[in-house]
Design a protein around this nucleic acid. Structure first.
Lengths: 250, 250
DNA sequence: TAGTGGTCTAGACCACACA
DNA sequence: GTGTGGTCTAGACCACTAA
């Protein structure tokens, strides 16, 4: 009936992970710095390899570190793009230098690849929102500096956009919204629904996401001034590459 | 010089995880359903325990499943609260039945616990935004149905709110914003910065987050009509409990 | 070639849940 | 008590990176 021997503290792998995390969050280890590898941890703490791996996997799944095969485990950085929702209300005071998170303000150009356009039967929620069972769907991927950052899928009611450039790869100057304007259907109101979750496998591939990186999912509905829904756009963003900004009154 | 023997496909643990994920996303397994456990997978696929664990850990880290000690691994659901940013512009058309994600609209009451108020030296970015090195800080946690869903930390310039109920636990009717109004500092404009990341350990504890659940972080700055910043509020939300909605023009 | 991370096996002891 | 997941050891072979 003696007391339990020694296990009052948290498991070894967790204590190791805590130590490394602290070093990262404190800035002792930063940006592309190399973390102690599996072998180093085995020696330093006298543990088995699986345990060292478990410790590192904690940080990897938290998105704080990235493993590079044959090389090592490295600290990850956060330098997002700033995406503006409603910026119409911005005054100088809250437009300049008042950001909470640092971000890349240099307006780097988007690249669009993998454009893909199809006429499809609408999924349930799209059909419900657009009041249309047939839709034209535009899928594309956006990259910045050669790195993919966003997947977007836009849906348009088939009867409204049939035989317009919206069903073509090249939509002409001003893009899709300008063409909707030509039809007298210029988007005037938007609602955006924002959520976050872990990525699905195909998103991990298409966005080249390291483990531990959530995605931000934006469901956006565009309405004309008359209240006609003309577009449902679902965007999937690499959360390590974005900060969303919304400015509003009241 | 014969071809490589058999390993053209993805690793076993991944194929198992893929199969289970498919079952979840297709709805074959849902809500609180129990997944096949480690032992079941070992037998079914003839693999070692560590490999079965690895397969399950994939789903757990994706937030699709939750392990329950001594019981099993269970499918997780997504039934979020809808949080409205700018809703001022909402018309009936885009206010009712036009949501992309299901959400709990029944207005369940928040509970606030762990209220904590202190006068502190402002962190860098807070000091920069508020033009004040000393701030009053209100920390609190919000729960819905007894489950914690949000952590919030509000900062107020010390010189503006000194000796007001804002420095007290009970701020009176209308809350903090009403008291700011009493001072002629009613918030009129807001900017919100939204990002997502994996939670830090203390957030995991305070929000009781299962593995694989990202947090949504909202950095909110409130300005008076005159453009004076009066509050910096950092909110950390359980991403499995929230959908953010923003409505805007243009 | 040496070192790194990726995958996998075959055991072990533990705390906890549930019947 | 039996079964579950949590932690840990001590090996193995592989693919990839970098010198």
């Amino acid at each position: 009936m003696q007391q339990s021997p020694v296990p009052p503290e948290s498991p070894i792998y967790r204590r190791i992970a805590d130590g490394l995390r602290e070093a990262i969050l404190a800035g002792d280890l930063q940006d592309g710095d190399r973390l102690p590898g599996e072998n180093a941890l085995m020696v330093q703490y006298g543990i088995a390899r699986a345990t060292a791996r478990q410790a590192l996997s904690v940080l990897i799944n938290e998105g704080l570190a990235v493993p590079k095969r044959g090389s090592g485990v490295y600290v990850r950085q956060f330098r997002p793009i700033r995406r503006h929702g409603s910026r119409r209300l911005s005054r100088e005071q809250w437009e300049r230098g008042q950001a909470i998170w640092d971000s890349d303000t240099r307006g780097r150009p988007y690249t669009v690849d993998d454009v893909n356009i199809d006429k499809e039967v609408a999924e349930d929620f799209v059909a419900r929102v657009l009041n249309s069972t047939e839709v034209w769907v535009r899928r594309r991927r956006y990259s910045v500096d050669g790195r993919p950052v966003q997947l977007a899928v836009s849906h348009f009611p088939a009867d409204l956009v049939q035989d317009t450039p919206i069903t073509q790869e090249n939509t002409g100057p001003g893009g899709v919204y300008a063409r909707l304007g030509d039809l007298g259907l210029a988007p005037a109101h938007f609602t955006e629904e924002v959520r976050a979750r872990m990525p699905h496998p195909h998103e991990t591939v298409q966005l080249d996401l390291p483990a531990g990186t959530p995605v931000i999912v934006i469901g956006r509905i565009a309405y004309t001034a008359a209240g006609v829904p003309v577009e449902v756009n679902e965007m999937v963003l690499d959360s390590a590459s974005y900060v969303l900004q919304y400015d509003f009154d009241s």
